[in-house]
Design a protein around this nucleic acid. Sequence first.
DNA 1: ATAATATTCAAGCAAGTATTTTAATGTCCT
DNA 2: AGGACATTAAAATACTTGCTTGAATATTAT
Lengths: 118, 118
Amino acid sequence: MVASRDDVCDIFCFNEEKVRRLRQKVQDVEGMAPLFKALGDETRLKIIFALTLDELCVCDVASIIGSSVAAASHHLRYLRNAGLAKYRRQGKMVFYSLDNNCFSSILEAALEHRISKP
Amino acid sequence: MVASRDDVCDIFCFNEEKVRRLRQKVQDVEGMAPLFKALGDETRLKIIFALTLDELCVCDVASIIGSSVAAASHHLRYLRNAGLAKYRRQGKMVFYSLDNNCFSSILEAALEHRISKP
DNA sequence: ATAATATTCAAGCAAGTATTTTAATGTCCT
DNA sequence: AGGACATTAAAATACTTGCTTGAATATTAT
């Protein structure tokens, strides 16, 4: 069971006004975690980044990230199930593309703040 | 062992030019996954979002996300170790704030594309 | 000192996840 | 039809992670 706000730090530990306001505000990001979780794996991050630039078949993806085809397929299905990617069949091959245009701007924002890293 | 590009799809499966170009380009996002992984958990996402708005003590955070204090501390240490948050001690309390200004713009970008969700 | 409070640490559990291997689809070509 | 090829599915393994519990640390007040 989770310790509730009434059991711990009863009196003056937290700033009541601040907490009340933020507890409300924080709901704005509810349900957004899966999107970031998709980006939170190095392999998948690369796949997504590549897909923001071009439509790709499974084999392309495997080749780009240097993984097995099965692993690439696995990740692509993950993205598909999460509603983040869509696919289109053309003959033997299946082409994937992103189903959510937010990735471009998110990655752009992240890349801009990257200057100070190394 | 990973199937290399020479073992699978030897000939015409993938688009060689495309793959070569993207394999290069994809390195731009190398090392960025931990940042998104931090955002990839609902609880931590809320904590980070709250911290973009205000400096908070551990107890505040626990109260905002409705978790135990230990869990909040756990997540805050995680962020600290990842170089994403910093802290300052004031008496008995420890105040956390973000050490990386990219979160505001990333979350802003994500929130903008949120209209089409439900 | 001692007590009280805020935070942290360490061990451990339960659930989730990335990857490999092997087998199964589905599609094109002859 | 049958073979070749691109992709997917399923099972197995190894690893990661979020959280809880209970003890430990650090600071303040008495």
